[in-house]
Nucleic acid binder design. Structure first.
Lengths: 415, 415
DNA sequence: CCATTTTGTTCACGATAAAAACAAAATGGG
DNA sequence: CCCATTTTGTTTTTATCGTGAACAAAATGG
């Protein structure tokens, strides 16, 4: 049984709604010219949206001769969405409007030795209750939940996780039991990618890679404008690309993975090594000459001050990152790379050498299309992306169709 | 002006046709259960197809109680397609039926020093005239033309080529002038990829990479079941992935590209080097002790005989290939890699060590999904793929939508 | 004040797909 | 041998929906 294409009505509805969503104010006749639909169709569908309170008429605007156009504006808070990020040490929930703009945020640290499903979901539920204290609950169209794991969003199954001791856990029913609205599960890296794609540094990009460089290196992909997950939902393992055929042994069993040479851990090691050659470097004083007490915070602070030792270490990191990223660029002919994660506290001190090394490693024809930029949403990327995906599935004419049809039906904005 | 989604009628027509296309024989009621459409819709749309001669009723089949089902079969030769491969030394044109099965083939070597657009298209036109000698021309729905170049199929523009001295050449009007049917232009690598995807070794794969290893190394990608071209139509440059950070200088300006260590050229060099250590190897006799007279043919023949020197060289090649392919696997979580090109004359002697080295280089979770197989269409892959894309755009419910709307309208099979 | 222009609504029509009724073609039990 | 039963396929009826045309509304400006 093949899924039927959206009937034209539903599709036209989303087409019209997208016009109102993506512009500050449009008139019915603007929509007619932008979409190619008939005046009759636009008129009747807009009438429905007005009735549902999704859209508002806001005064008229007479520019030239003729009847002035009635401007339509999105009722941005007619419906709300939740985005949650649950990790081994923190629970963050944000409430957003229809444009994924954050309205409210609740963040609590988690301190526990037993990271059971039960415990973490209890914790999440408490955070959600807190954030929804004075919110009309029927306005919530759904929640996107992200965890640091490989996840199958179509079945809400946790396949594998490094940080959480969860494996092959079906969360669908459990989430349905705990929350009165539909909840979809995404991997943190993917959600962050989509957050940047729709609401951050990737809004006008079509084939992008978002890479998070921290203690591990994970990437997320958008291909042809749509989230890409890969056959086993594990796409984006940039950290285990081989950059040094005979390099150090990695946890994964391979030698010379990017993750062995370009993590924050590796940055510390590099700074310590180079520091030994620069006995008069100002960092020594901050350390009281104890190399082992060097922290990431201190390194990044020194980077902001233009410290040459740190800059050299960052340049080494960038050189390795460039090899892996150039592989992605050459293979996929991307148009944007967004860099985020703890390493990006270094900012341009990392990006600039990264761009330089990419110049050498990637093909000139491919470099012409690509921008290398910093994450715009920072630590909110996963939760905004998760909320955004719920919104996108509900409202966009071309949703990613990642969720099960049950959830997609329940978050449908119209009808 | 946003393009409207296919109206439901057109889509249902393709849905039904796909059932008849992809099965040997189906009845109307099979189609009803497979597609979920109503009996009325299937009945009337099938009637149209019978009238157009696309489909045939072939006897009835009574399995159990009840009225026997009338079987429907595709009239495979109701319409025909052409696929052409034009290179600097050869022109190959094949005529196929609706299932892309080759009916006829014309191949002619090209010997010229001036590879002008004019000359090559004249040559192509002559080949096409030859193959269409006794074919009803109104049966031809279109031709897919492939050339070894980076191409924008939506505008039939040659962006860049290594083998042909063509750059930023708009072929659209020229092709329209020369041929009475629509002609679409594709890059050879991409066409070959889609040929394997739809009719070769990738039929049940959804995220695949086809790599051609010869004197250069180029790959093509299928992502989420659809051809993927990249932002500047240049996706698949596997040959310039860095596999050795401080390796030899490559033509592209980078150091340690895969193309510096894993081409057929490199294979010859490796065999010669290793041979020096094996003075009693049988290859020496064939060479009359002249290392420089060693040819690829001799190497591959020795490989078939299980020659250890050649096997060792192939193992080295496979080790380097594995590094680049593992990058693709880790990044994209592919489910199939298809290997073709001159190097694949070695067959399993190359594939087996390749699989072994991939085991070490790629993540175990990702390896679980992947098959590494040999090209099935061999040297026909580009032309069958090109013809197939024309067929696909004309008949498939989910076409890749790579062509301009003008061409897509002209190759429409129905109406 | 009214022709003109542009915006938005209403109405009649046509396309089309689903449901229901109907027809056809077999089986098999009495 | 006939007729109920079953499954397949066709025709008729009905409902939905989008378009185009006619119409209404609301401005400008001579």
């Amino acid at each position: 049984m093949i899924a039927k294409l959206d009937g034209t009505k539903e599709f036209n509805r989303k087409l019209i709604f997208a016009q109102i969503l993506n512009n500050v104010a449009v008139s019915r006749s603007d929509i007619v010219t932008n979409t190619g639909l008939s005046k009759a169709a636009v008129s009747s569908l807009v009438a429905e949206m007005l009735e549902q309170g999704l859209v508002q008429e806001t005064g008229s605007q007479s520019t030239t001769i003729g009847r002035p156009r009635i401007m339509l504006e999105l009722q941005t808070e007619a419906r709300l969405a939740l985005g949650a990020e649950l990790t081994d040490h923190e629970c963050r929930v944000i409430l957003t409007d229809l444009r994924a703009a954050p309205l409210k945020e609740v963040t609590h640290p988690i301190k526990t030795t037993e990271l059971t499903v039960e415990y973490l979901l209890d914790f999440l539920q408490a955070c959600v209750t807190e954030i929804l204290a004075d919110v009309e609950q029927q306005k919530i169209i759904g929640m996107g939940l992200t965890i640091p794991a490989v996840v199958d969003p179509s079945t809400s199954t946790v396949l594998l996780s490094v940080l959480l001791p969860w494996r092959d856990v079906q969360l669908g029913e459990e989430l349905e039991r705990r929350f009165p609205f539909p909840v979809a599960l995404f991997s943190r890296g993917n959600a962050a990618t989509w957050g940047e794609r729709w609401y951050g540094a990737g809004q006008d990009a079509y084939n992008l890679l978002y890479v998070r460089v921290g203690n591990g290196i994970v990437a997320g992909l958008v291909i042809n404008g749509h989230p890409y997950l890969g056959q086993g939902f594990g796409a984006g393992e940039l950290g285990h690309i081989t950059v040094q055929p005979n390099g150090a042994l990695c946890r994964c069993g391979n030698r010379g993975c990017l993750a062995t040479v370009a993590t924050t851990e590796s940055l510390l090691i590099r700074v310590r090594r180079i520091l030994r050659e620069y006995p008069e470097d100002p960092l020594w004083q901050a350390l009281n000459h104890h190399l082992e007490s060097l922290t990431l915070d201190a390194v990044f602070q020194a980077a902001r001050g233009g410290n040459v030792v740190v800059q050299q270490a960052l340049d080494e990191i960038a050189a390795w990152l460039a090899i892996a990223l150039a592989s992605a660029v050459n293979l996929l002919n991307l148009d944007r790379i967004i860099v985020g994660g703890p390493m990006m506290i270094a900012g341009e001190a990392l990006l600039e050498p990264l761009r330089t090394h990419l110049q050498q490693r990637a093909l000139p024809t491919h470099l012409a299309h690509i921008d290398v930029v910093a994450s715009a949403l920072k630590e909110n990327a996963p939760s905004i992306g998760a909320a955004g995906l719920i919104l996108h599935e509900a409202m966009a004419p071309d949703p990613a169709a990642l969720l099960s049809s049950t959830i997609r039906e329940r978050i449908a904005l119209f009808e």
